Computed example of a mutant assay.
Amino acid sequence: MEDAIRQYKQAIHQLNPGVTADEWAYFQSGFTIHTLKPKAFFIEAGKHNHQLGFITSGLIRGYYLNEQGEDITTLFVSENGWATDYPSLLMHRPSRYNFQCLEPTTLIAVSYEHIRAGYDRFVGFERNGRLIAETVLMEQQRRIESFQFDSAEQRYLDFINSNPSLFNRISLTHLSSYLGIERPSLSRIRRKIVGL
């Protein structure tokens, strides 16, 4: 557990080197550490999300069910990544997404209530929240723009270049869903790239 906390502290300091000892002590006082098995949910669709999670080990897949009942992968979150559904967190509404573990996963969660109380208590504390939100938002924006401007092959290449540690940890089915590419088409793209 100490390693997980040290890892989280390092991530916070990388985002905001100006975090004070008092701010960190307050932040840490609201931690809960979760050890989840594969297929366990951190966030479930239809339920309110009250927590911001930081993954210290493992892998989570975010997805939703479309009108045909198919699950559509929207994100993967692995070590040193932030896991939350911000619309559910900020607007107090049920999540539309499932965040499910693909591997044994350890994460540190902090309630949004604790975070908001920190905003009121410490002048610099809001910076942490803003920087975490910006990190999540930038990843979401990058994904949206990849669908708008990049070919299927480019989306695949960008994914494997940006996520080399995930390549052998996720199924081809989940990857094709995330990239918006039919599985046979993704297999053809992979064969083409290997043949280059």
Score class of each variant (00 low, 15 high):
M1E: 08
M1R: 10
I5F: 07
Q7I: 03
Y8Q: 14
A11H: 00
L15K: 11
L15F: 09
N16W: 12
N16P: 03
P17M: 02
T20F: 08
W24F: 15
A25W: 02
Y26F: 02
Y26W: 03
Y26E: 02
F27Q: 03
Q28C: 06
Q28N: 09
Q28S: 09
Q28V: 06
Q28R: 12
S29V: 05
G30D: 02
H34L: 15
K37M: 12
P38C: 05
K39I: 10
K39S: 14
A45E: 09
H48Y: 08
H48W: 05
N49W: 00
H50K: 07
L52F: 08
G53H: 05
G53A: 10
F54N: 02
S57A: 11
G58R: 05
L59P: 04
G62H: 10
Y63N: 12
Y64E: 11
L65G: 09
L65D: 11
N66S: 01
E67N: 00
E67I: 00
G69H: 00
D71S: 06
I72W: 01
I72R: 03
I72A: 01
T73W: 07
T73G: 04
L75V: 08
F76Q: 10
V77H: 08
S78K: 11
S78V: 07
N80P: 03
G81Q: 04
A83D: 01
A83S: 04
A83T: 02
A83Y: 00
T84I: 01
T84R: 00
L90S: 06
H92C: 08
H92R: 15
P94N: 00
P94E: 00
P94R: 01
S95A: 10
R96C: 02
F99R: 08
Q100T: 03
E103Q: 12
P104C: 05
T106P: 05
L107I: 03
I108K: 01
A109S: 13
V110T: 04
S111W: 02
Y112S: 09
Y112M: 12
Y112K: 13
E113C: 05
E113S: 14
A117L: 10
A117F: 05
G118E: 01
D120M: 12
R121K: 08
F125Y: 08
F125M: 02
E126Y: 13
R127W: 03
R127Q: 12
N128L: 14
N128E: 05
L131E: 11
I132E: 09
I132L: 12
A133K: 10
A133E: 13
A133H: 11
T135F: 00
E139R: 11
Q140K: 15
Q141F: 14
R143C: 04
E145Q: 11
S146K: 08
Q148A: 13
F149K: 07
F149C: 04
D150N: 13
S151I: 08
S151N: 06
E153D: 07
Q154S: 13
L157T: 14
L157E: 15
D158V: 12
N161P: 07
N163V: 04
R169V: 01
L172W: 09
L172G: 15
T173A: 14
S176N: 12
S176R: 06
L179Q: 06
L179D: 06
G180N: 13
G180V: 09
I181S: 03
E182C: 06
R183Y: 12
R183I: 15
S185G: 15
S185I: 13
S185V: 11
S185Q: 15
S185D: 11
R188I: 10
I189S: 10
R190E: 12
R191L: 09
R191C: 07
V194G: 07
V194Y: 09
V194H: 11
V194M: 15
L196Y: 14
